[in-house]
Design a protein around this nucleic acid. Structure first.
Lengths: 383, 383
DNA sequence: ATGAAAGCGCTAACAG
DNA sequence: CTGTTAGCGCTTTCAT
């Protein structure tokens, strides 16, 4: 065990605790504590003396000790599904900015969609005694949540939380943005509009898909062109491959997230399909990168910054003003379309499939499942 | 102050500390501690009794208390420059994977190149009494580092650390990959090869630039086409604009990082410059995305995974086997070229500038600085 | 206004 | 092998 004790380097660094400061400033440790915590009743003279020593020695209070006695760690847990998904870094950054402002620390864990990791995430949160947890995984075991709830840890969910008192939920209005996207496409005379969905065990992916279906039906179009992707670029590539195997491929495709759309762009490039002239594509999320794709991606914005801000403040609210356990707080985040250059008027076609057939032959690898009709989209959706 | 005391919910949740476990298992708290920490000398019978209660009650030891007495927090600090830079998420993920494996937690901070944030980063690390810090900012104030060193916190730097005993350094062999890139380009008959550098106050950016210069000179080409970017896509776009204003623009461009290259790709699209036929572009870093750009990006790989792994293990090494303070540990990470599809034979041109001039007219916004010659590249470089 | 002392939850001597 | 006890560094009564 490495411990920097008196005996280790008596001349270099003394213990450097509140006691040492007290000794040098010739006051009691209680006074040091008060001075440091800016308790107003402390004599300015003494306070100054304390601060002088503190600065000279470069003393920093031990947060662990403080947390132990206070019963508050000033740590917020942040559980995301994959930090490598460009959707999250922005959120993490905003969350951290707010944490710094409010003197909190973040305990970040990435579940990588692995149940074991989710479990360890929750365990770590509890062991470190976090003051609150923001769960941005778009899907999580009910039983794990219980562990947190049992301990009365303030929780904020995005989109997937159980609707129970004491748990804050950020509901995302998917319909707004997706409807705009669909209608934008329809206005450009697209009729065969496909949707590349995300993994259907993610509640958020299911919700996006439903929003698509509803938006299509609303304007008398049938949402029968749905392919399941994986919210990654690879999935987008495969999905486009699938779609182009059809007799009457879509002229526009709406993607469940931007990564998928980037995959579509990439596969289109591969197949010499011009975006947007041959095919319009719309993403979802509006990650920073969406502005820099080729062509720049028209996408549905879901502000990562706002999301993080709402989540953090919800937690802060609960902790600082403990409004918890009585009311149920619900927040809403609205999505909306941002137009860039990946959509255009539907190509004019007499009949089906006028695009050069040769270029549209699919490579054989396929991991996505073509799923026609609005069938079983409720299976495997967590809740 | 919220504290879950006996009096709060006597029937719901008792204090839930080691004492409570001891009481219920009818053993002493010492035995509980031993059982939990798997001290082999404890009677299996008792151990089982303890674990039973622990499981029933869903007891998790309080890490803060443990850290306090142990003098070790089992937290590693990870300081990155910008979590939103796609280079880092991969590192964070690997770092976290290793942390989970080894029962550590990560305290992640993002400096966003702001000196104030760097300072607060260091302060937070110290306050939380991290057991070690990995500094992946590619540049940091010497004075801040002192704070950590004073406290004998194990440190590992990437590329920018002072060469002193007790500090581990991961040296990056930029030359290897960059030389390969330059020679690859030269082999494709490119002669006018430009370099879009990163911010020159970053030591890493300076090193990349020097590697470029050296590689060019090595084969008798003069590295006089250097534009300073910002390691972001915007910088890449602007840089290409600048480059194309020249009388004799380059036929190939090597970028200081992939984000810059993505910007170049994007601006080329804007200007109808075909990549790779009109212009070859090479990136640096090999972020995951590089495989999905249009066209797929030829780039110099610098394994984020390896980097994170080396950094974490260096820290673990110091902490667990305290090899610290005597030797200086140096690790090396080699870079190498990965070929994709953004490079091609140099276009054949009788004289200068045969590309359609009209398409190469720059928009007026410009933030980057054109910097000819190998001049003052040492100014503002830290260390 | 200040100080002495108790105790946050845990581990590690030290005794038995 | 098990239990008792003294802290880890801090905040906070409770006296003074």
């Amino acid at each position: 065990m490495i411990r920097y004790s008196k005996s280790f380097a008596p001349f270099l660094l003394t213990p450097m605790d509140i006691r040492e400061i007290a000794r040098r400033a010739k006051v009691s440790i209680a006074t040091v504590s008060r001075a440091i915590n800016r308790v107003p009743t402390v004599d300015p003279q003494l306070a100054k003396r304390v601060w002088k020593v503190v600065d000279e020695l470069g003393y920093y209070p031990n947060t662990q000790a403080r947390a132990l006695v206070l019963g508050r760690s000033r740590i917020f847990g942040l559980i995301v599904s994959e930090i490598t998904n460009p959707f999250f870094p922005e959120i993490v950054q905003t969350f951290e900015d707010l944490a710094v402002e409010n003197n909190y620390e973040i305990l970040l864990t990435s579940t990588v969609h692995d149940p074991k990791r989710m479990e360890s995430s929750v365990r770590r949160m509890i062991e470190r005694r976090v003051d609150g947890v923001a769960i941005l995984t778009f899907g999580m075991e009910e039983s794990l949540i219980e562990h947190l709830r049992d301990r009365k840890v303030p929780l904020v969910f995005v989109d997937v939380g159980p609707d129970v008192p004491g748990i804050a939920n950020i509901r995302i209005n998917y319909l707004n943005g997706i409807r705009q996207a669909v209608q934008h496409l329809a206005a450009l005379r697209h009729r065969r509009i496909a949707f590349i969905a995300g993994p259907q065990y993610l509640k958020s992916a299911g919700a996006r898909r439903e929003a698509f279906e509803d938006s299509m039906k609303e304007i008398g179009l049938s949402p029968d062109l749905i392919v399941i992707g994986d919210h990654r670029m690879e999935g987008g590539m495969n999905a486009l491959l699938e779609l182009n195997k059809l007799n009457d491929p879509p002229t526009a495709v709406l993607c469940s997230n931007d990564m998928t759309a980037i995959g579509v762009l990439r596969e289109a490039y591969e197949q010499n399909i011009n975006i947007p002239d041959d095919l319009s594509v719309v993403g979802f999320d509006d990650i920073h990168l969406a502005e820099f794709t080729i062509p720049p991606l028209t996408t549905v914005q879901m502000s990562q910054h706002d999301l993080a801000k709402i989540a953090f403040n919800a937690l802060l609210q609960e902790v600082e003003y403990g409004s918890s356990s009585r009311e149920r707080h619900n927040y809403e985040l609205v999505t909306s379309l941002v137009l860039r250059r990946s959509t255009a008027l539907a190509p004019i076609r007499k009949s089906a499939a006028t695009l050069p057939k040769t270029n549209r032959i699919a490579k054989s690898r396929r991991t996505s499942i073509v799923d026609f009709g609005p069938a079983n989209h409720n299976s495997r959706v967590t809740d």
